[in-house]
């Protein structure tokens, strides 16, 4: 029986466990991530936050020797079944990495790369291509500064521009969810501020999940926070609640920067 509240969730996991070989990295994780908000995954190194993020578009499977049990529902659909087409899944669940990774080709080709691999060329006439490029670059506030240099090699851009471009190139695929793995860690203070501003603008249209080591960033930039420790979710609450009045003692110790 379908439950409207559950159907409205962007991501729902139940008893999700994951092993790298014999090492269990996630333990029975059950979490509900709401649409159109920014959710941060926080916790000490090795707590499983990046692993959990990578479960949301099954990118963990690329590493081999990975065993996953339990359920992950994206927009109501269980993605750990054989019927799921990975290419389609990754269209609706885009990912941005720690270090900007534009392809060493032009800016415009970077934008079109994803959409080209998902469509036939006759479905992408020149006018449509231009429209996609302008709209994607406008959404990440790069259009005005780059519109006259679209043939420039993307790897010559500043790191901040490269990261924005990496976000922009997901957009023509019309994703519902954007996963970000420490998207600001390679950037300077100005770059961080502008990427955070961009993420905040994007949340009206996309569900955003960010892994961050930066507590101040989690506080500033996210609506909800999930604290993980040793592969388990210890606390999931609104950011304000979690940073003002954490219910879990381990969460409190971590965010306050205390030793146990």
């Amino acid at each position: 029986m379908s439950d409207p509240e559950i159907d409205e969730l962007s991501i729902r996991t139940r008893n999700l466990s994951l092993w790298y070989g014999k090492f269990q990295a996630l333990h029975e994780v059950s979490v509900d991530i709401k649409p159109n908000i920014i959710t941060s995954l926080i916790g000490p190194s090795g707590c499983g936050k990046t692993t959990l993020l990578r479960c949301f578009n099954r990118i963990n499977e690329r590493y081999g020797n990975v065993t996953t049990t339990g359920e992950v529902r994206i927009l109501g659909e269980n993605i750990y079944t054989e019927a799921v087409a990975l290419a389609e899944l990754r269209k609706s669940v885009g990912m941005v990495f720690q270090r900007p990774n534009p392809l060493p080709i032009s800016i415009e080709k970077n934008i079109l790369f994803g959409v080209r691999s998902h469509s036939r060329s006759r479905d992408l006439p020149a006018s449509k291509r231009e429209e996609l490029i302008e709209s994607a670059l406008s959404e990440v506030s790069l259009w005005n500064e780059l519109k006259d240099n679209l043939k420039r090699k993307a790897t010559t851009l500043t790191l901040e521009q490269q990261q924005k471009l990496c976000i922009a190139r997901l957009l023509p695929l019309k994703p519902e969810i954007i996963l970000m793995d420490e998207p600001c860690s390679a950037l300077d203070a100005d770059g961080i501020e502008r990427i955070e501003e961009l993420i905040s603008e994007l949340k009206d249209r996309y569900t955003i999940v960010i892994v961050t080591h930066n507590m101040a960033q989690a506080r500033r930039a996210s609506d909800e926070c999930i604290y993980m420790y040793l592969g388990e979710i210890k606390e999931h609450a609104s950011t304000m609640e979690l940073f003002m009045n954490p219910k879990n003692e381990q969460t409190a110790m971590y965010i306050e920067g205390r030793y146990g």
């Binding site: 507590m215 506080r219 940073f243 003002m244 009045n245 306050e256």
Partner: peptide, 9 residues
Amino acid sequence: YSPVARDLR
């Protein structure tokens, strides 16, 4: 120190 939680309170 940007205190949070108990420390901020």
